[in-house]
């Protein structure tokens, strides 16, 4: 099959999924979700990956596709990319990222991934390292032995940093509103129950045969 026909296949596939409204199924981390794409288009896995790397027509079509359907917000940072790549390599060789005294060795990791100190401070990088540490039962970083209360909390300890502050504030406001509403509804419930009980008691008063209302005062 000619190289051009791979591009044409890609573009035909793109038109089909757009018609079916399935485009989002193939966006992942700001890029084309390769595994899903290959399965959907019916190309063999290894050969398909090779084509996506080497075929000019495909590369162009893919870039246009990603530019059209993937936003920059979906795209992880280049730093994260390199860290992910480093982790994949260690996973492949069944080794852990560099550790020292039972904790991730940040200096070594930065060197191996080609990251600067500033890049290592990025939220997404710290989040990835935190979850990697938790998953692999190692400390995120070595702690000082003096005044542990002065430690900077790790990524996972700063739970509010796992959720954007703005979102947290919104949710907290909604929660407060809901709690106020709940209290109002409970009070209303109690009032309605009292009315219902009173109706039953008035029935009992009617049953005595005489006056069952105080008149205009009530």
């Amino acid at each position: 099959m000619s190289e051009d026909s791979f591009e044409q296949q890609f573009r035909r596939w793109d038109a089909d999924i757009q018609n079916e409204g399935r485009t989002n199924e193939f966006v992942r981390a700001g890029r084309l979700y390769v595994a899903a794409f290959l399965k959907d288009i019916g190309w063999p896995h290894a050969a398909g990956r090779q084509r996506l790397k080497e075929n000019h027509g495909l590369l162009k079509a893919r870039a246009e596709w990603e530019a059209k359907h993937c936003t920059s917000q979906d795209r992880p940072s280049a730093a994260l990319d390199r860290l992910n790549k480093l982790i994949s390599e260690h996973d492949f060789s069944k080794t852990l990222l560099p550790t020292k005294y039972g904790a991730l060795w940040h200096a070594q990791i930065a060197e191996q991934a080609g990251l600067t100190a500033k890049q290592m401070e990025r939220k997404d990088v710290r989040a990835l390292l935190s979850s990697y540490a938790a998953l692999n039962c190692v400390e995120f970083s070595r702690r000082g032995s003096v005044a542990p209360e002065e430690d900077i909390p790790t990524q996972l300890e700063i739970s509010d940093e796992l959720v954007p502050k703005k979102r947290l504030r919104e949710v907290q406001t909604q929660l407060a509103k809901a709690e106020r509403k709940l209290a109002e509804l409970r009070a209303e419930n109690a009032s309605l129950r009292a009315q219902s009980i009173r109706r039953d008691e008035i029935s009992d008063l009617i049953a005595l045969g005489g006056r069952y209302s105080t008149g205009p005062q009530n």
Partner: peptide, 13 residues
Amino acid sequence: RLSRAWGTKGIRS
């Protein structure tokens, strides 16, 4: 029975 039927307002009456 009377107090339950008429409530606080009724009792004031």
